[in-house]
Amino acid sequence: MSSKLPYTESELVELLKLKSQRAYNYLYDNYSAAVYGVICKVISDADEAADVMQEAFIKIWRNIEQYDASKGRLFTWMINIARNLAIDYIRSSRSKNNSKTETLTEATPLAPGDYTDHIKTDHLGLNKVIDELTIEQKAIIDLAYFQGYTQEEIAKELNVPLGTVKTRARAALLKLKHLFV
């Protein structure tokens, strides 16, 4: 990915902090799909997901000053913003609908195959990666990274001890690292 960049990440961040519209344009062109993909993991309705993405990109532009490179990558920061907005959106729309007043943890537990249903893309690369991951590893990443579950929530969701969640999380990441890095 980074080989395609005309900017290094630090240059991009610097330009964004200077409110360069060009850098922002670049950011959108290169990361909007990933951001939208993450939002779509949480919000199934495409229009609602697009609205949340708009909110996320506006927040990224407005709050770029708050991004601290020492805490992690720009991408991680952006994904966190997008995912948090998406989760907030789902929670508030659920409470508005009065269908469930419970928190996400207490919502109807996901059926075992439910989280994998989100992965519908037939992207060759993705399928290849998914084939390499175990079902457990995939579930951990989906719940933690895409759905924003806590360790406790995942433990409950998957009905495994907390320590297992931690171990699986590490194993999943090591597998990804092995595949990508």
Binding site: T76, I79, V129
Partner: peptide, 28 residues
């Protein structure tokens, strides 16, 4: 180690990318 973990996850997330509706950019 932190960067590698982030990059691995980023690449995984990029694989899940979906093209947003065409007018979203203009709207933003």
């Amino acid at each position: 180690a932190l960067r590698e973990a982030e990059d691995a996850l980023m690449n995984y997330a990029l694989l899940h990318g979906k093209t947003p509706p065409a007018n979203t950019k203009d709207k933003i």
